[in-house]
Design a protein around this nucleic acid. Sequence first.
RNA 1: CGGGGAGUGGCGCAGCCUGGUAGCGCACCUGCUUUGGGAGCAGGGGGUCAUCGGUUCAAAUCCGGUCUCCCCGACCA
Length: 564
Amino acid sequence: MRISRSFGKTLREAPAEAETISHQLLVRAGFIQQLAAGLYQFLPLGWRSQRKIAEIIRQEMDAAGALEVNMPVVQPRELWEQSGRADTFFPPLATFEDRRNRKLILAPTHEEAVTTMVKANISSYRDLPVNLYQIQTKFRDETRPRAGLLRTREFMMKDAYSFDADEEALDLSYIAMVEAYKKIFARCGLDVTMVDADSGGIGGKDSQEFVLLAENGEDVVLLCDHGDYGANVEKAEFVKKPNPPEEPLEIEEIATPGVTTIEELAESLGIPTNKTAKAVFYTVDGDVVIVTIRGDLDVNEAKLRNLLGGIEPRFSTAEEVAKSGLVAGSASAVGLDHIRSIVDDSITLGANLVAGANKEGYHLKNVNFPRDFKADIVADIATARPGDTCPIDGGRLEARRGIEVGHVFKLGTGYSESLDAKFLDAQGESHPIIMGCYGIGVSRLLGAIVEAYHDERGMILPKAIAPYAVYLASLNVDDDEVVSKADQLYEDLTAAGVEVLYDDRDEKPGVKFNDADLIGLPLRVVVSRRGLGNGEIELKGRTEEKASYVAVGDAVSAIQDRLE
RNA sequence: CGGGGAGUGGCGCAGCCUGGUAGCGCACCUGCUUUGGGAGCAGGGGGUCAUCGGUUCAAAUCCGGUCUCCCCGACCA
């Protein structure tokens, strides 16, 4: 493509609203343009890059045995009422009415639609397994779209759904997708980290996330420094350090006027925080629940939610706390038999803790579990932190920020049950189909790539997803020889199947070099009067400091070699 | 939804405090010169100053409402 005939131009300065580096660079390079908050238009360069990503995904999904389909973005709201998600999905479904006053929604995801598609076409175990995918627009009315393509309201997603007859088959489908994802990201030229993930309110036993590590990422992941464990902070497990063993002592009330936090308590008594028990109140389905955890740890709400069967807990309000007879700042589960109690297993790793006395200004020494209070559930509900011990090999966990570019999880039978998608097994018995789902944020991926791969001059695009492979610049367009040689090279490269963005504008060299760096194609090729004087063409990789030179006659093959 | 910031040619900004009919840089058009890291000179085109209302002889500027965008938080495939 000749730049003189293309559409979209580069900007010296980014719009003031673009703060994230990928957002700035994508706008400045003329890849995308904002239409409204969280809504972007793709210009030719950006769309070309997007299509390349989609094509890689398509090839690998096909190779993994998945079949491409297409489902509507506009769907009857009724379908979502059947699955039970019409009112619970967050962010709320974008709903509107058609001319016959039927309620329609813009689909934020496609489990309902695909399950309906499968239901009509699958009736026997002989029809399974099946894996269907699409590359499709989604709409989610996000509370706060941000950071350019990293969190938009309308976005492009590849979503795949597997359907199996039993758990073992689901495991195979899942593994096939994980392997396909690894290939996809590798082919895109990306170093993507796979971590254990929270499966969310949907449930299901396994879930993993594919994260591109980047400073601006929204996700926090914990990685073992030995490289054998990684997990989203919502999911991460760790080895809790036990307190030194002690004989349980008699419980004892002590006055602690004005002390309401764990830090104050530990300081005033001269003890470490792991010798205290922290009580936190959550409201779940309208009831207050008391959660007890060792003072040196924090509650992980995602783990708590999973423990509660997917119900989202929230901090109780001051009124709710007071109404339950709890004393904020001096509370504990001791003596509170009427309130549901959840205990983190860290409480079992020490004796003689200091806990609230449920009386303002007083705490209790030598509190021991289960001697002094009950638990309805004991489980791991603690948040892992950097420096904690890896659950696999005792290594040290380190925190990194990243951008979630893919997510796979085992759904189970939730949708096939609510939407009645069943199959008959060999014995003629009916079962709900077992599902998995597998997403890749296609438009987000472009933003994530730029976020992770850029320098002060512009983007550094991996070859596989760059809109063109070569930035060909002619430097002295008043020189007929330069123009004819550059034109010829452009023709020859194009004929040889090399994708070339040809900067044939009448611009100063500096303008062309700067645009080349900004757009960040892998290889820059320069035809100039000076070079031709030596019978040479100049080649420079985007990340190379110095250019190299090849004879004019060898240019095409040399460029092809460089792109290998 | 809570907190903060901002809306002035395509982009970046000044002007607002102290009202007097809009300016700078980039980009764009014409001409000449220039040509290896965002050229120079000369001439030129383009703005309902987000919007609605109020105050005033007069509003980009003062007052009020509304809308939009960005950031932090909450939330989040």
